[in-house]
Design a binder for these strands. Structure first.
Lengths: 94, 94
DNA sequence: TAATTTGGTTTATAAAATAAACTTGTTTAC
DNA sequence: GTAAACAAGTTTATTTTATAAACCAAATTA
């Protein structure tokens, strides 16, 4: 009756990150930080978890002289996100 | 942009319990256990938390000789549930 | 050149979820 | 009638998570 919710996505911050990444081609650390309002430490940890599950890719480079971390959602991530949304729907009337 | 999700409802089991209670007049412990598939210990703990927040009421009585715990959603609980659903919607496209 | 800011990571702490063990009483099988 | 199994939970312990605090290196600003 109640499908299991992917614990990796059932986290406020990771869900917000995935929600952003699902809608754009890529987003960098700073952007994700501003949009989510998360602390850098928390965001760093959660990004690592999403990357470890291959839900996103993380690319480290430089923008001029400053480091720049760019995240992208993977096909696995898109599928997991969609499944999570579908599962969640079962928890609510209509 | 991403509204805070009520941490009391952002829990798989508590959400399932609230989802059930939102749709019925009352439900007893055993019914909730069967519908959610949760262990009794976990359900007991989560019910306590919902009751402590006044999201549900818990009434202990007997059905014949056997103990029977009946749960009901409160107006506070209904409002919190609705707000959670609304907040969650902001995390998804459309 | 000293202080501050940027862009993070690592480590420590607090909170949550979950499982395991236990309790109290009831029913069933011998 | 009594031992074993079951019902309905609760309590306690363990594991996992989330979050915050501290830290680091390089760049920028005063």
């Amino acid at each position: 009756m109640f499908p299991k919710l992917d614990p990796l996505l059932h986290s406020e911050l990771r869900l917000a990150v995935m929600s952003i990444l699902a809608g754009v081609d890529e987003a960098d650390f700073t952007y994700l930080r501003k949009q989510t309002g998360a602390t850098a430490g928390n965001l760093s940890v959660q990004i690592d978890k999403l990357a470890a599950a291959n839900y996103i890719t993380v690319e480290k480079g430089f923008q001029g002289k400053m480091p720049r971390t760019t995240c992208r959602i993977t096909p696995d991530g898109q599928e997991a996100f969609q499944q999570y949304v579908d599962a969640l729907r079962e928890y609510f009337p209509q």
